[in-house]
Simulated assay, not measured.
Amino acid sequence: MPLPFLTADRAYEAAEDVPLPFDDRDRWRRPYRPGPCRVGVAAIALLLASYVLFAAVIIALTGTLTEAGVVFGIALVVIAAALRMLRMGVWVSVRGLRRVGFLGTRTVAWDRIVTVRTVQQPVRWLGLPRTVQGQALTLVRQGRSPEDEKPLLTTHNADFLARPEAFDRAADTIEAWAAESRHG
C-alpha cells in the first residue's frame, strides 16, 4: 500500500533546485513528512486498537453481540483518531492553504493571504501551555492582524521537534507555494 506522506521529503530532496517539484498542483499535498512524535503516538494508538479488536472478537465468541459491538465501536474510534492524527498539518494546492486540525479543517484561498513568513517568537512546546523560543511559520490574511492568527508550523510542534532542517525545508516550500500562487 503506497503511503504518500512518507515520500514527501524524498521528492523535495530529489528536486532541490525546483521550489515546487510536483506536476499535479491541483492535488492537496503536505510538503513535509509527519514527525516521529506524531507517528509514534499514532502507532501506539493503532497497537491499542488491535488489542481492543481482539478483545471484541473474544467477547463476541463468549459474550453477547451487543457487548462485542460496543468494544468494536471503541476500536473504530481509536483507529479513526490515530488516522486523523496522522492527517493533521498544513496542506497546499493551487486553490489555497489548508490547516488540518484534529477536530476541524480550515482552508484559505491564496488570494486572501497577504503574506506567509517565518518569524522568531515564543512558541508552544508540543502544543502544551509551556512556551519556548523558536521559529514559527505565520500566515497573515486580509482583514486580520498577525496577532489574531495561530502559527501554521513551529520548530517545537509534533512534526518538527528536534528536526530544524525539516522545519526550514517545509517553511521554505510553503512560502514558495504562497509566492507562486499569488503571482501566478
Rank of each mutant, 00 (worst) to 15 (best):
A56T: 05
E13S: 04
V57E: 11
R84P: 01
E16P: 00
F72A: 15
V90I: 15
F22L: 11
A81K: 00
A42K: 06
R27N: 06
R38D: 07
V57S: 07
R33S: 15
A80S: 10
L20G: 07
I58P: 00
D24C: 01
R25Y: 03
C37M: 14
A75W: 02
L97A: 05
G69K: 01
L83R: 11
L97Y: 04
I59Y: 00
A60H: 13
A56L: 05
I58K: 07
V39Y: 00
P34C: 08
V71P: 02
A60K: 11
A81L: 12
A55V: 08
A82Y: 07
I79E: 09
A42N: 09
V94E: 15
R25W: 06
V18H: 05
A15T: 04
G63K: 05
V70F: 14
A11G: 03
L46D: 10
F72T: 10
R99T: 12
A80M: 08
I74Q: 01
R30C: 13
V57I: 10
L53I: 15
A55L: 14
E13F: 00
L97N: 03
D26E: 15
A55R: 06
A82S: 09
L53T: 14
G40F: 01
P19D: 12
S50N: 11
G69Q: 07
L76I: 06
A82F: 04
W91Y: 09
A49G: 14
G63L: 09
A68E: 08
I79T: 12
G35L: 10
L47G: 15
Y51D: 13
V18F: 07
G69C: 04
I59R: 05
L48I: 14
S50M: 15
A80V: 09
P21R: 07
A82V: 05
V92S: 05
L61Q: 14
A75R: 02
R99M: 13
G40S: 09
